[in-house]
Amino acid sequence: MKLKILAIGQKMPTWVETGFKEYHKRIQPMMNTDIIELPPAKRSKNPSSAQIDHYKNQEGTAILTTRQKERLWVLDVKGKMLSTEALADKLQNAMTDGTDIALVIGGADGVSAEVLAQADFKWSLSDLTLPHPLVRVVLMEQLYRAMSIIHHHPYHRGE
């Protein structure tokens, strides 16, 4: 199984790059994971709701054209919340099926209706509003933790 993270946004702060790279390096022996950064739509100040929809649609087109035949998992505030153990089970099922995954981190305004409509799974990391740069680090850490559970690595010490 391969996991491709499709993330709207480029030029992350150093602390994000450092945290992401650390977990990215750790997870590679367990799961081939890559990130593709897609440029955000150019935004105007104080956009109307129609302009915001336009931005989301532009970014959605970039996401869907970058995705190949992978199953589409989308981070969405209205998605299903998972425990780390449930995430491990979901990843284990995908590995057993030989399913590749494209996991989407949307832009500042979320993802387009078209991306959500094509999603095989909508996942919420938290009820909290998290800044998109932090999401990258939290996501990679949780993927690594889930893979640690699957591989019986001591990183995750369940109760």
Score class of each variant (00 low, 15 high):
Ile5His: 08
Ala7Lys: 05
Pro13Ala: 14
Pro13Ile: 10
Trp15Phe: 09
Val16Cys: 02
Phe20Arg: 04
Ile27Trp: 01
Gln28Thr: 10
Pro29Trp: 09
Met30Val: 08
Met31Phe: 15
Asn32Trp: 15
Asp34Gln: 15
Ser44Met: 13
Lys45Asp: 08
Asn46Leu: 12
Ser48Pro: 10
Lys56Met: 10
Lys56Phe: 02
Asn57Lys: 09
Asn57Ala: 13
Thr61Phe: 09
Thr61Arg: 11
Ala62Val: 10
Thr66Gly: 00
Arg67Pro: 05
Gln68Thr: 14
Gln68Val: 14
Glu70Pro: 08
Arg71His: 05
Trp73Thr: 07
Val77Asn: 10
Lys78Val: 07
Lys78Asn: 13
Gly79Glu: 01
Leu82Cys: 02
Ser83Gly: 02
Glu85Phe: 07
Glu85Trp: 08
Ala88Tyr: 11
Ala88Asp: 11
Ala88Arg: 12
Asp89Lys: 12
Met95Ala: 14
Gly98Val: 02
Asp100Gln: 14
Leu103Gly: 08
Ile105Trp: 05
Gly106Leu: 02
Gly107Gln: 11
Asp109Ala: 10
Asp109Gly: 10
Asp109Gln: 10
Asp109Lys: 10
Gly110Lys: 03
Val111Arg: 02
Val111Tyr: 03
Ser112Trp: 05
Glu114Ser: 06
Glu114His: 09
Glu114Met: 09
Val115Lys: 02
Leu116Asp: 02
Ala117Cys: 03
Gln118Glu: 14
Ala119Ile: 04
Leu125Ser: 04
Thr129Cys: 03
Thr129His: 05
Leu130Ser: 09
His132Asn: 04
Pro133Tyr: 12
Arg136Leu: 07
Val137Ala: 02
Leu139Ile: 00
Leu139Trp: 00
Leu139Gly: 01
Gln142Lys: 04
Gln142Gly: 04
Leu143Trp: 07
Leu143Lys: 04
Ala146Arg: 06
Met147Tyr: 13
Ile149Pro: 07
His153Glu: 11
His153Tyr: 12
